[in-house]
C-alpha cells in the first residue's frame, strides 16, 4: 500500500471519528441518546434484526425504519402525517440526516471488507434548537435554504448540512471536484458515476 492509499484511509477514518463524536452528542433537535437510538433503529431495520426496545417516540421509530429501508416509497402525505403525529419538519431533517449519513459510512466499511464501527456511547447535553435563518419549504417537503436540491438537502439544520458535505467530500467528491468531469480520485469520474448511477437504480431513487 503506498502513501496515498494510507492517506485516503486515514482521511476517511478522521471523518468517521468526527461523525461518531457528533452522533453521540446532543444535536439541534435530538439529544445524544435519541440520536444514537435513531442510528440503532436504522441499523436494526436494515439487518432485519429488530430488538423493539426503543426510547424514541413511535413516530420517530417508524420514520427511522422507513427512511432506512424504503425511502423510495416516501411521499408528501407521509411527511405531513409524521408532522401531525409529533415529528415536526426540522427534527425530520435531523433524523433523515442521521440515517443517511450512517448508511454512507456503514456501506463504505462493508465495501472495503471492514466490520462497521459499534455505535458510540451517547453523551449528555440538550439539543440546541438553533433555527436556520431563511430555511423554509421551497419545492420540497422539508425546509431548505434556497430551492430544495442535493447540495442543500439538509440545510434546514446547519450541523447536518456541514456533516453531509464532510462525508460527501471524503467518500466521493467535494462540491468543487463535482465540476471536473475528468477527475481521477482512485477511479476516473466515469467509473465513479457508473457506481453512483447503479446505486441509485438499485435504490429505485429517481433523483
Amino acid at each position: 500500500m503506498d502513501d496515498r492509499q494510507i492517506s485516503t484511509r486515514q482521511q476517511i477514518e478522521a471523518m468517521v471519528d468526527n461523525q461518531w463524536q457528533r452522533l453521540a452528542r446532543a444535536g439541534t433537535w435530538f439529544s445524544g441518546q435519541e440520536r444514537v437510538e435513531i442510528a440503532k433503529v436504522a441499523r436494526e431495520a436494515q439487518s432485519h434484526d429488530e430488538s423493539g426496545l426503543y426510547v424514541l417516540t413511535e413516530v420517530a421509530t417508524e420514520a427511522a425504519k422507513k427512511i432506512a429501508t424504503e425511502a423510495h416509497t416516501i411521499d408528501q402525505q407521509w411527511v405531513e402525517e409524521c408532522g401531525e403525529r409529533g415529528l415536526a419538519l426540522l427534527p425530520m431533517v435531523e433524523l433523515t440526516a442521521i440515517i443517511a449519513q450512517l448508511s454512507a459510512i456503514d456501506t463504505y466499511y462493508v465495501g472495503v471488507g471492514v466490520t462497521p464501527r459499534n455505535l458510540p456511547e451517547p453523551q449528555p447535553g440538550e439539543p440546541s434548537q438553533e433555527e436556520v435563518k431563511g430555511a423554509k419549504l421551497m419545492r420540497g417537503w422539508l425546509p431548505t435554504r434556497g430551492v430544495a436540491g442535493a447540495p442543500n438537502c439538509f440545510s434546514g439544520v446547519a450541523a447536518e448540512a456541514d456533516a453531509l458535505h464532510e462525508i460527501h467530500g471524503a467518500l466521493y467528491l467535494s462540491m468543487p471536484e463535482m465540476m471536473d468531469m475528468n477527475i481521477t480520485k482512485g477511479l476516473h469520474r466515469s467509473q465513479i458515476e457508473l457506481l453512483a448511477a447503479r446505486t441509485s437504480n438499485y435504490n429505485d431513487c429517481f433523483y
Binding site: R4, Q5, T8, R9, I12, I67, A68, A71, H72, I74, D75, Q76, V79, M92, T96, A97, I99, A100, Q101, S103, A104, I105, D106, T107, Y108, Y109, V110, G111, V112, R139, G140, W141, L142, T144, V147, A148, G149, A150, C153, F154, L164, I167, H168, A170, L171, Y172, K185, G186, L187, Q191, I192, L195, A196, T199, S200, N203, C205, Y207
Partner: peptide
C-alpha cells in the same frame, strides 16, 4: 485505492438517495 473509492461512492449514494427521497425535491 480504487476499491476504497468504489466503496465510498456507493456509500455516498446510499446517503444521497435517502436524503433526496425524503426531501421530495
Amino acid at each position: 485505492e480504487g476499491v476504497i473509492r468504489a466503496a465510498g461512492a456507493v456509500g455516498t449514494f446510499q446517503m444521497m438517495n435517502r436524503a433526496l427521497d425524503t426531501l421530495g425535491a
